[in-house]
């Protein structure tokens, strides 16, 4: 799917929440208040294009329905895929959509816009701000439509869970949320790393687009894969862990905590690699314009 990043529109610039920048306020509090200002900006911007905002939600919903109907059609002809049953796979699709949408809400457009920031020279301005550069570049926009879509995904998950007669206890839910966070961290780290390539080539678009095809793998049951493909997408690009492990926790199919540890370990590793890549890129950055 060749999705262009959305048109960037400048919202009203509000600086009010930055008033309390006195040195005594804690660093964390400062970042929280900055993020609140960014969030407020994003809401204002989205509401400026209401019908567009709603249309994007419809588009995402349609593509999600398409994924689910693919599974429903397949299960007209088979009882299971590996050791996964129909509703388990629907739960998996829901979970992977949930993870993807949360990732989209907070990170995706910021990552895809990095190449544009570099091309027009706006990155210089970002780097000069008295704030962690990676923080402001990764989080400056919030895509609220993603939250709505994540809600739909959650409803599909609940429905699938009902079909499976799942009654998760509080620990399972907490564990699921935690592992989901690790999955989002993996998506973010890898996407940010890919976006950093645009320091060298302006046409990083193709690469960023390519990441979209990886989402397709995240929603597949891991039992469908073996050999080198499974190894690559578990240990190098851990797509087969991102949503499979949290769902397996919910349906109690984890025989040992090894998978959980692997997911957590891989998410930290991805974050570390992306940080190294980012620092390396910034060190070699020579401004584009001016």
């Amino acid at each position: 799917m060749s999705r262009e990043p959305r048109v960037e529109c400048r919202g009203p610039t509000q600086s009010a929440p930055l008033d309390d920048l006195n040195p005594r306020s804690s660093a964390l509090g400062r970042y929280v208040s900055i993020y609140a200002a960014l969030l407020k900006n994003s809401v204002a911007r989205e509401m400026g294009f209401k019908s567009n905002f709603l249309m994007w939600i419809v588009v995402e919903l349609l593509w999600f329905a398409l994924q689910v109907s693919f599974i429903v059609v397949i299960f007209q002809h088979t009882e299971n895929i590996g050791d996964w049953t129909q509703w388990e796979v629907v739960l998996l699709i829901g979970a992977s959509q949930f993870i993807q949408q949360i990732f989209q809400t907070f990170f995706l457009s910021n990552c895809t816009q990095l190449s544009e920031l570099i091309r027009v020279g706006k990155l210089d301005f970002m780097l000069l701000l008295p704030i962690n550069s990676r923080f402001i570049i990764s989080l400056r926009q919030v895509d609220l439509g993603g939250l709505v879509n994540a809600g739909t995904a959650l409803m599909v998950m609940v429905y699938a869970g009902k079909q499976l007669h799942l009654v998760p206890d509080a620990w399972q839910i907490a564990g699921f949320v935690f592992l989901t966070g690790a999955g989002i961290l993996i998506h973010y780290s890898l996407m940010f790393l890919l976006a950093s390539v645009s320091f060298w080539t302006v046409r990083a678009q193709g690469i960023v687009w390519g990441y979209y095809s990886l989402f397709n793998i995240a929603r597949m049951p891991d039992a469908a894969f073996r050999g080198w493909f499974k190894a690559v997408f578990t240990f190098a690009i851990p797509m087969l862990l991102v949503s499979n492990v949290p769902v397996k926790l919910l349906v109690q199919r984890l025989s040992s905590p090894a998978d959980i540890l692997l997911l957590l370990g891989m998410s930290l590793a991805c974050l570390a690699v992306s940080e190294v890549g980012w620092r390396f890129s910034v060190r070699h950055y020579t401004s584009a314009s001016s």
Partner: peptide, 26 residues
């Protein structure tokens, strides 16, 4: 855009391979 096209076609093979694996498992 040739490099872009190359990326596109190569990346496109990954989900294709995944779909084929899915059918193999079925």
């Amino acid at each position: 855009y040739r490099v872009n096209f190359l990326f596109r076609s190569v990346f496109g093979l990954i989900p294709l391979f995944a779909t084929l694996s899915l059918w193999r498992a079925i």
